[in-house]
């Protein structure tokens, strides 16, 4: 007996994506508890959580293009969860900096924020993620209204740029990884710009034919 597609999505796809998304955090915890994070576990935790924040941000941004290109429209139903996972890993990243790396040394943290552009841009990006997570519920979406909600959530592109910049400004000499993340982001951004132009062209044509 075939399961209907709604049930399939809710009972199988979503839980699977949820647990797979939790895997990096689970592994990190396991490694931390079993002393497998190497000589500098704190650095490892901060870096790994940062990596996964960027990865989830990029996956979130890739969902709409993937849906358009593949025609699998149900993929869009995973966007909120994956976006929230980006926020989850960003929280881990921020908390590991605050607690493990700095241990609430507020003076040092303040100096970091004011003096070091990579920390500044990282923190700003993190703070900008908070309203997106807060307004991710259906209720909030209704309260804000579709247009306003969408405009707010478009800031995720700026946040992703901030995240990549944060990484790029942090590394000492080997910029390969931040360049890879940056290239993927540029690709996603240009796809968005391209499809927006196409949409507008279609709209204009429709408006034109309506006047005739």
């Amino acid at each position: 007996m075939a399961m209907n597609s709604e049930l399939w999505l809710r009972r199988i796809v979503k839980p699977t994506v949820f647990f797979v998304s939790l895997l990096p955090a689970t592994l990190l915890t396991w490694y931390a508890l079993t002393d497998q994070l190497g000589a500098n576990p704190i650095e490892e935790i901060v870096r790994t959580s940062g990596d996964w924040t960027l990865r989830f941000l990029l996956i979130t941004l890739a969902i709409t293009p993937t849906r358009r290109l593949s025609g699998f429209h149900w993929i869009a139903r995973l966007r909120r969860m994956i976006g929230l996972f980006a926020f989850f890993y960003a929280c881990l990243h921020f908390l590991s900096y605050l607690v493990l790396d700095q241990f609430f040394a507020w003076g040092e943290i303040l100096k970091d924020i004011l003096k070091r552009p990579f920390i500044t841009v990282g923190l700003v990006s993190f703070v900008m993620l908070v309203p997106l997570a807060v307004t991710s519920t259906n209720k909030m979406m209704k309260r804000l209204g579709g247009k306003r909600w969408q405009r707010l959530h478009q800031s995720v592109y700026i946040i992703a740029c901030g995240g990549v910049l944060h990484y790029l400004w942090m590394v000492k000499a080997d910029i390969r990884d931040p360049i890879i993340y940056g290239s993927i982001l540029i690709l996603l951004l240009s796809h968005r710009a391209w499809s927006k132009r196409k949409e507008e062209a279609v709209r204009r044509r429709r408006a034109h034919s309506a006047t005739i």
Partner: peptide
């Protein structure tokens, strides 16, 4: 220019 040199983490220690 990008990070502080006033403190350090001794490998194996939690507090800087």
């Amino acid at each position: 220019p990008r990070w502080s040199q006033s403190r350090e983490r001794r490998i194996g220690e939690f507090f800087k």
